[in-house]
Amino acid sequence: MNNDKRERGIARYHEVYNNQLPDPPAEGEDRFFDYMLGSLFGDLWSNETLSIRDRRLLLLGAITAQGEEMTFAIQAESAYRRGEMSIAELEEAVLFLTQYVGYPRASKLRLTLLGMIGKWKKELSAE
């Protein structure tokens, strides 16, 4: 992978996750991560056909369908911290997706979201 593509991928990775995730490993240390930085973040997330918020909504739907609580939490946290989605919008997204992925799967993600909302509200009241 060329260095420009990797640098673009790293910049978009930090932007998408609002600098909340650890720095990626150095080039060549983790081939999986190198590929992800180049193709996923350097190409797909960097393409301006869809906004980051649009991509995030698609991703939240896919993650909800798979019942991926940890990945859902990372995406919801990033969407909230970046100002892409409000608490009400995240709650509405889970409610809407429940009708398509089923109550058992979405209920776990709703509980994850409620825990995050409690944390965010504490942060706001502490300010």
Rank of each mutant, 00 (worst) to 15 (best):
S78Y: 03
P25S: 14
V94Q: 07
Y13L: 07
L57D: 01
E91R: 12
Y35N: 09
D30I: 03
N2T: 13
I52S: 07
L95F: 10
A65N: 09
K119N: 02
L109Y: 04
I87V: 10
R31D: 04
H14F: 12
L58I: 06
G83M: 08
L113S: 10
W120S: 00
L90T: 11
E127H: 04
L40P: 03
T71N: 04
Y103V: 05
R53C: 09
Y100N: 05
R12C: 12
G38R: 09
V16P: 01
I74N: 07
I63V: 15
K5L: 13
L109I: 11
F41E: 12
E29T: 14
D30L: 02
E7T: 15
R12D: 03
A93T: 07
F32C: 05
M85I: 12
Q99S: 05
L97E: 08
Y103L: 14
E92S: 09
E92T: 12
R53V: 02
L124M: 13
Y13H: 11
L60W: 07
I52Q: 11
V16N: 11
R82H: 03
A93P: 05
E15C: 03
F33E: 09
A26L: 13
M116C: 11
G61W: 05
L114W: 00
A62S: 13
S39H: 15
F32W: 13
R53G: 03
P24F: 13
I74C: 12
N18A: 14
L57V: 05
D43W: 05
N3Q: 15
L50N: 01
M36R: 09
G61I: 02
L50K: 04
I74T: 02
T112P: 00
E69W: 06
Y80A: 08
E29K: 12
N47R: 10
T112D: 00
P24D: 08
A93F: 09
M1R: 03
G118V: 00
K5Y: 05
N2G: 06
E15W: 02
V101K: 04
N47M: 06
L59E: 09
R53T: 05
A106S: 15
R12Y: 07
V101D: 07
G38E: 10
R82G: 01
L109V: 01
D34N: 11
W120E: 01
E91L: 06
E29A: 15
M116G: 13
G118S: 06
N47H: 14
D54S: 02
R110K: 13
M85C: 15
R6W: 15
N18F: 05
I63L: 15
D4Q: 11
F33W: 14
W45N: 14
I52T: 01
T49L: 05
L37F: 08
R82T: 03
Y80M: 02
D34H: 09
R6C: 11
E68A: 13
E15I: 00
R53I: 05
Q99R: 04
F33V: 06
G102D: 12
P104C: 11
N47E: 07
R81A: 06
T71M: 13
T64H: 07
L109C: 09
I74Y: 08
L109W: 04
D30T: 07
Q66D: 13
Y100I: 02
D43A: 07
